[in-house]
């Protein structure tokens, strides 16, 4: 079992609102690996993130996505999350009147069997612990989810949620954008701590910029252009991108 990939995507085509965005994407993540997908705006990075999380507007038209041996595309969004696929949103949604603590407690409860109740003391300890890690004020947990948050607070809130819900596969959709260097360091540290606690955690970082990769070391870097991966390699790919820009990769390999 140990060598079954966490995520295996083969020749994935997908569309949103009848426009094909993903055009034959291949990707494989094994346990404990960190992958980064880099690409210019409009390359389909965020589409991939939303599709993997199960957004109903994004439709796979062909290809396959297998998560821990199961057909991910057959699962509803909530089922995927309970199975361990969690997306940190690029644009987190505001939910007035619902506190972060309340929301997270409900999410933890959703992972338990029907006759089980969240242990509130354990939950509170975990929450305080994770918030300290992210250098958040304790009052943050009582604020309504993303309501009136700054861009940086929203992104930190996303990482807090992931840290509380113990994913097997963390998808970070441009979590680095809108963060200043200090916040970026804190978020990166939290991701690294999550990995120390769970060495099997697989992480897919979707980003426009190379700088986040200075803090979270990827095992693999992929370049995505026009809905497909056009180049894969080690961290050196990111460095090359930084120096040369995306121009070099405009034309998909083999086209």
């Amino acid at each position: 079992m140990s060598d079954i990939p966490v995520l295996s995507i083969k020749n994935l085509h997908a569309k949103v609102a009848d426009i094909e965005i993903l055009r034959g994407l291949n990707l494989e993540l094994k346990k404990g690996e960190i992958h980064a997908i880099m690409g210019p705006n409009g390359s389909g990075k965020s589409t991939l993130a939303k599709l993997l999380a199960g957004h109903p507007a994004y439709e796979a038209t062909s290809g396959e996505v297998v998560y821990k041996g199961k057909d991910l595309l057959e699962m509803e969004a909530d089922e995927r999350a309970r199975e361990g696929v969690l997306l940190a949103f690029q644009y987190p949604v505001e939910i007035p009147g619902v506190s972060i603590a309340n929301f997270l407690r409900t999410a933890v409860q959703a992972r338990l069997a029907e006759d089980e109740e969240v242990d509130l003391f354990d939950f509170q300890d975990d929450l305080v612990d994770r918030m300290e890690l992210l250098e958040m004020d304790p009052s943050f947990a009582e604020r309504p989810v993303n309501d009136g948050f700054s861009g940086g607070e929203k992104k930190r809130g996303e990482i807090l949620q992931l840290a509380m819900l113990n994913p097997s596969l963390a998808l970070l959709d441009e979590t680095d954008s809108g963060l200043d260097i200090d916040a970026l360091q804190i978020v990166s540290k939290a991701i690294n701590v999550m990995r120390e606690k769970d060495p099997d955690l697989a992480v897919l970082i979707i980003t426009h910029y190379q700088r986040v990769l200075n803090y979270v070391q990827p095992d693999f870097v992929h370049v995505m252009v026009k809905g497909a991966i056009v180049e894969s390699g080690g961290p050196e790919v990111a460095t090359r991108l930084e120096e040369q820009g995306y121009e070099e990769f405009r034309v998909p390999a083999g086209a």
Binding site: G54, H55, D78, A81, F89, I95, N102, A110, Q161
Partner: peptide, 18 residues
Amino acid sequence: VLFYLMSRGLDRRQAERL
């Protein structure tokens, strides 16, 4: 909003309630 909540593991009904 519902998708956001469901992406954390809440089923649709739980998300609506929240």
